[in-house]
């Protein structure tokens, strides 16, 4: 083994059931959960985490299912993103989720990467996602065990940005997350899975596991738009998911969620005020303003924070305009691979 940046020495265990995985989580003090590994293995090689055990959950068959019961689609935590991106039923029922899945990373990552891994993705920061040499030379920050945040030195918190693509779509679609723990399973609204704190953005106990998402069927139209510098291989500068419904040309439901700008995927407040109105220029401007006001991008990327805000706002206007237009097709889906 001569190649640089090897994985640290770890032991891998591969439970076959959710219960066994939960038990293993409770037993092993220094462990990480391994799903697709497209985020975790890279982070391990950079020394961002130092587990001695990896709990590989990909042996749990139960978590691979997609099931449609009545008005809900239940998607197991281990469902691969490529499968979501290629599934015509997902495309027609939950367009935002479909578009979001198709926009993640590059094709190979989508074949390995899972829904659960995408939701539980580590937050990102230019001072954090670096090699061990880099972080040591630069001085550790709050997230890597140091005393100060290099992005906002006067503050007390970490602003590392949540940059997953699925979460905003699920939040806009009002999906629920199923979580298993030693005491059984519970459900939370997707937005409630997250905190606004880059060091600990997940509201998940150390012995819990995300097991599934449940997306309600709805008459709302939905879409996801993501801006990035490249068309592939790139996290969102900002990503906006919207689900909305119009009746007689007037808005009667509207949910907007944004990723890439905060330490959590943000559910935009105040959209209720726009209900009952026609989606005209003033509504688009109002929606754009709501987003611009609420997102808090910080200097966690080399790309200037103020423009991440303006891009989030511009995407909101564009997406809402397209969804409210009479013949809205699926919006924002990049060319997806054929099945």
């Amino acid at each position: 083994m001569t190649a640089p940046l090897p994985l640290p020495r770890v032991r891998v265990i591969r439970p076959a059931t959710v219960e066994a995985a939960i038990a293993a989580r409770a037993e092993c003090p220094q462990h990480e959960v391994l799903a697709g590994g497209t985020d975790l293995l890279v982070n391990l090689r950079r020394g961002l985490l130092a587990p001695t055990v990896l709990i590989d959950i990909t042996g749990i068959a139960e978590l691979e299912e997609i099931r449609t019961t009545g008005d809900r689609t239940r998607i197991g935590a281990l469902v691969r993103l490529a499968r979501l991106a290629e599934d015509p039923a997902i495309a027609s029922r939950h367009a935002a989720l479909h578009a979001a899945a198709a926009s993640v990373a590059a094709p190979g990552h989508r074949r390995l990467g899972t829904v659960g891994g995408n939701l539980c993705l580590q937050t990102r920061c230019i001072y954090f996602n670096q090699s061990a040499w880099w972080r040591a030379a630069n001085g550790a920050c709050l997230k890597s065990g140091g005393e100060v945040c290099h992005v906002a030195p006067e503050g007390e918190r970490c602003h590392a940005a949540f940059s997953g693509d699925l979460a905003p779509a699920l939040i806009a679609l009002d999906a629920e997350i199923e979580i298993a723990g030693p005491g059984g399973r519970r459900r939370v609204a997707c937005a409630d899975l997250y905190h606004e704190e880059g060091r600990a953005h997940l509201r998940l106990a150390a012995d819990e596991l995300v097991t599934a998402i449940e997306v309600p069927a709805s008459a709302a139209r939905s879409g996801y738009l993501k801006e990035r510098i490249r068309r592939s291989f790139d996290f969102p500068l900002a990503g906006v998911a919207i689900a909305c419904r119009t009746e007689g040309g007037r808005l009667n439901a509207l949910r907007i969620s944004v990723t890439g700008t905060n330490s959590r995927p943000l559910l935009i407040d105040g959209t209720a005020a726009l209900l009952g109105r026609r989606v005209d220029e003033s509504v688009l401007t109002a929606a754009e303003k709501l987003v611009a006001k609420q997102v808090r991008p910080m200097r966690t990327t080399l790309f200037p924070a103020n423009h991440r805000r303006s891009i989030a706002a511009a995407l909101t206007r564009r997406l809402l305009g397209a969804l409210a237009a009479p013949a809205a097709a699926e919006v924002g889906a990049p060319p997806t691979e054929a099945p």
Binding site: P4, L5, T38, L41, V42, R45, R46, A105, A106, P107, G108, H109, R111, L112, S131, F233
Partner: peptide, 18 residues
């Protein structure tokens, strides 16, 4: 240094992955 170039792509059960 991991997942950013695709030079390591192989087929696993017919699917190209890094």
């Amino acid at each position: 240094d991991g997942g950013e170039c695709g030079a390591c792509t192989v087929l696993v059960d017919d699917e190209p992955v890094p």
